[in-house]
């Protein structure tokens, strides 16, 4: 009934398509090509050489960083999900509509504050003479080395993904059919059991997607591991910034970046599979 292609339609659909092809798809494809280039005397030249791949994959440092990054991101995804769930659950089921709207609004605010500034702020809390150690000193404890630890890195990851995870969990919890919960209660199912056997399975898709986002964000973040974790353990993102910013080893950085993308794709695919497992549309 309507012409599939018209000047009118193309005017609206094409600009974004062209922009994302030119400046999103092509750069990522170029990254693939770049990973086969060679660097001699600090000058990159187009080439088809697997030397970058074999060099990077032959290094123990790379695999240590890979393992550390994966473990940190997985840990952050689990920790964030576990800490966020009671909060999202309480907002969804224990607050009035007005209070819930405020809660959502407040959770959105962190997205518009600088992540860097918040990380710096955590340094104020966690440093040896920082707020937390001073407070501990009042009750005769410490000081404990809090900054430059894995725990501090986790605080940074939480700062990054906690609000998003709460919101995503909340949206999946709000849309649960409440009659299901009432039915469970009517059949004398205890509250904890109801949460695990009714609420969590019903909200599974949202919960898994939320955890996935926490994983993606933590996996790629270079700010927390450096400025809160003190650069130890070295993560892949730190490797990328070091390799890119010092010298012209962009092809090797490209290898790391592509490995990260590959990992994220596998994890995302597995997560989505798991989320929709047994659900037929």
């Amino acid at each position: 009934m309507r012409r599939p292609v018209s000047l009118y339609g193309l005017t609206f659909s094409l600009p974004l398509l062209i922009w994302q092809l030119l400046f999103f798809v092509f750069p990522l494809l170029f990254l693939v090509a770049l990973s086969f280039w060679t660097v001699k005397n600090f000058v990159m030249s187009p080439d088809f050489d697997t030397v970058n791949w074999t060099t990077m994959y032959g290094r123990a440092v790379f695999w240590q960083a890979y393992g550390a990054t994966f473990a940190l991101a997985a840990g952050a995804a689990a920790l964030t999900s576990i800490l966020a769930f009671p909060c999202a659950y309480a907002i969804a089921f224990k607050l009035s509509d007005t209070a819930r709207r405020w809660a959502v609004f407040l959770m959105v605010i962190p997205f518009f504050t600088s992540y860097l500034v918040r990380v710096y702020s955590w340094q104020i809390f966690l440093s040896d003479n920082g707020i937390i150690n001073v407070m501990l000193g009042w009750i005769g404890l410490g000081p404990y080395p809090l900054l430059n630890t894995v725990g501090a890195t986790m605080v940074g990851y939480l700062t990054l993904s906690f609000p998003l995870v709460v919101l995503l969990q909340l949206f999946s919890l709000v849309f649960i059919d409440r009659t299901l919960i009432e039915a469970a209660h009517n059949m004398r199912c205890g509250r904890v059991r109801t949460v695990f056997e009714v609420v969590i399975p019903s909200a599974r898709v949202g919960l898994v997607i939320a955890a996935l986002f926490a994983f993606i964000l933590s996996f790629g973040d270079f700010v927390s591991p450096i400025y809160l974790g003190g650069g130890d353990p070295t993560t892949l993102s730190i490797l990328i910034t070091d390799t890119t910013k010092s010298g012209q080893q962009w092809p090797r950085a490209a290898v790391i970046a592509l490995t990260m993308i590959g990992t994220l794709m596998v994890v995302a695919f597995a997560a989505v599979q798991f989320a929709y497992k047994g659900k037929t549309k």
């Binding site: 990254l31 770049l34 986002f213 790629g220 990328i240 962009w250």
Partner: peptide
């Protein structure tokens, strides 16, 4: 089309940054 329109924010910024730097 929709994937292209919505996907970029899910790519870690550090990878996007590197890809952009090299390409641009």
């Amino acid at each position: 089309y929709l994937a292209l329109a919505l996907l970029p924010p899910t790519i870690p910024v550090i990878i996007l940054g590197l890809a952009m730097l090299a390409y641009l």
